[in-house]
Design a protein around this nucleic acid. Sequence first.
DNA 1: CGTCCTACTTGAACGCAGTGCAAGTCGCTG
DNA 2: CAGCGACTTGCACTGCGTTCAAGTAGGACG
Lengths: 250, 250
Amino acid sequence: MPRDTLTREQIVKAAIDLLDDEGLEGLNMRALGKRLGSAATAVYWHVGSKDNLITLAGDEVWHQIALPDLATMDWRTAATQMATDLHAMLTRHSWLVQAFGSYMIFGPGKARHDDHGYAVYEAAGFTGAQADQAAATVFTFVLGNALVPAAAASFTKKLGRDGGNAEALMHESMAKAHEIAAQFPRLRARLDTAATDYAATPDNTFQFGLQAILDGLEAQLGAHSTPSDLASPSAAGGDASAEHARIGDV
Amino acid sequence: MPRDTLTREQIVKAAIDLLDDEGLEGLNMRALGKRLGSAATAVYWHVGSKDNLITLAGDEVWHQIALPDLATMDWRTAATQMATDLHAMLTRHSWLVQAFGSYMIFGPGKARHDDHGYAVYEAAGFTGAQADQAAATVFTFVLGNALVPAAAASFTKKLGRDGGNAEALMHESMAKAHEIAAQFPRLRARLDTAATDYAATPDNTFQFGLQAILDGLEAQLGAHSTPSDLASPSAAGGDASAEHARIGDV
DNA sequence: CGTCCTACTTGAACGCAGTGCAAGTCGCTG
DNA sequence: CAGCGACTTGCACTGCGTTCAAGTAGGACG
């Protein structure tokens, strides 16, 4: 084997770096080749296609999120930690959320994460399909929460790529948004309090939503009628005298 | 004016149709021109750019969702209806979810929807930032819930475009996913019960998650009084700053 | 030491997609 | 009828994903 050979891992790592820097639309094979110090087409021998490379990169980053030890903490803490870690990871790699909408991202990395996710909700006392749905609910919320910031990041990067007057264009588009919002009473009110910034969905919203969801899930578990939330003593309802929670049918 | 002139509305409508048929990556100006019976470049006079066209189309569809009358139903019914309508709309136009990750979609259509969304949660009793967060939580969940199905649809359409052996490729990629999943105990168990179909996240999950979230929100209403927020001692994604959102654009 | 095989790299080139441009075309208005 | 302005069109440029035939290099084997 030649000494200075590219490796799949090296390529995937470089792709992740490039994606972090330039966003999903900023990734192209020639730029990647340059970053690797090789011809663009050399990459094809190792990864086959750009789609496949993105799939690879999109799975790799899941390894960055830690899997909490369920033996040393109650499920709610574990769930919060996993969701928060995922949130942070998606913020770091905002291109992943976009990729999630266009590619089937599933590999060892995500599988490892999903598996542990199920473990958390099974430890909570959910059984069978309920554990799946609980996990999916939280997962889905975290994903959706990352979508708008991802769009903002993508937009910003595109402006930066298109020309020098990025500031001006950004300002213009914000101004137009304000103008539209001003025509609706509640949106207008939010404009005044300056709470509505398209680019920055506050982290508070994430924590608020996450805890609300976990509250809702917890309620399904034991019907432990203490709405005073917070307290999450080790639920571990033994074997889930799982009340058949009522689910809205279609 | 010449008699057979294109109009912006006509173009946007054709674009939506094409997007529904072919997906986000299937939309290109020449195909759109053909569908309109005109040259591809004629479109540019009316909409400026493809990005702008997508922004226009992506806002237009929001008008399809109904705004429940808050005077004749309780907030939870209204919230459920709005979320369900949104869910249905996103399923109809799965490209929109992808577009949401790459473009800043905000116009009169979405503004109208958002405004009413806030109205619902204010009617519920949430005040100020809490109403925003409640609305964002549900909205975000619905969006995230549509993401994976959108990816599946996109993937299928791409396969259909690439060549005739779509079935084979689809089968192969599912087989690979199964193989990976089989290495993780909980995923493997789900494989056996045949509950895991990547392309079809059951609608049950949506209803389950939505009701759980509304449960959680409802609980916050009753147990008011503590703005000291959230349990979760750990986590702390970083700045747990005040409710004053920072505005910084990038 | 030479030779071959395999693993890998490269540059040229093809096709498609977004889009700017200059030259139309058509109908209305003066 | 001349001309203007609203629209349309074909051409062509660029950038990107990808293919392909032609390399190159290092180890294995004789």
